[in-house]
Simulated scan of single mutants.
Amino acid sequence: MLTKDKVKELIDHMPETFSVDDLVERVFLLEKIESAQKEIENGEGIDWEDLKKEMDSWLK
Rank of each mutant, 00 (worst) to 15 (best):
M1T: 13
M1W: 01
L2K: 06
L2Q: 08
L2S: 10
L2N: 09
T3C: 04
D5T: 12
D5N: 12
D5A: 14
K6F: 00
K6Q: 14
K6H: 02
K6C: 00
K6E: 15
V7L: 06
K8T: 12
E9Y: 03
E9P: 00
L10D: 07
L10Q: 07
I11W: 03
I11S: 05
I11L: 11
I11H: 05
I11M: 10
D12W: 00
D12H: 09
D12L: 05
H13A: 10
H13L: 07
M14F: 06
M14G: 08
M14C: 04
M14P: 01
P15E: 12
P15T: 05
E16V: 10
E16Q: 12
T17Y: 06
T17E: 14
T17I: 04
T17R: 09
T17C: 04
T17G: 04
F18N: 05
F18A: 06
S19I: 04
V20R: 12
V20D: 11
V20W: 06
D21C: 00
D21H: 06
D22T: 07
D22F: 00
L23A: 09
L23G: 05
L23E: 02
E25Y: 08
E25I: 03
E25T: 15
R26I: 00
R26A: 07
V27P: 02
V27M: 09
V27S: 07
V27A: 11
F28T: 12
F28H: 08
L29W: 00
L29I: 06
L30C: 07
L30D: 02
L30R: 02
L30E: 06
E31A: 15
E31Q: 13
E31T: 01
E31L: 09
K32R: 15
K32C: 08
K32S: 13
K32L: 11
I33K: 14
E34L: 13
E34P: 00
E34W: 00
S35K: 14
S35P: 00
A36L: 10
A36M: 09
Q37N: 13
K38S: 10
K38H: 04
K38F: 00
E39D: 15
E39A: 13
E39Y: 04
E39W: 03
E39G: 09
E39F: 04
E39N: 11
E41I: 01
E41M: 07
E41Q: 11
N42G: 01
G43V: 04
G43T: 02
G43Q: 07
G43M: 02
G43N: 07
E44T: 00
E44Y: 01
G45Q: 05
I46D: 07
I46S: 07
D47Y: 03
D47I: 03
D47E: 14
D47L: 08
W48Q: 08
W48C: 04
W48S: 13
W48L: 11
W48Y: 11
W48I: 12
E49K: 12
D50Y: 03
D50W: 00
L51I: 05
L51T: 05
L51F: 08
L51P: 01
L51C: 05
L51Q: 08
K52M: 13
K52S: 03
K52A: 12
K53Q: 14
K53D: 11
E54T: 07
E54A: 14
E54M: 11
E54H: 07
M55I: 15
M55W: 09
M55F: 09
D56A: 14
S57F: 01
S57L: 09
S57D: 10
S57T: 09
W58Q: 06
W58F: 15
K60A: 14
K60W: 02
K60C: 03
K60F: 03
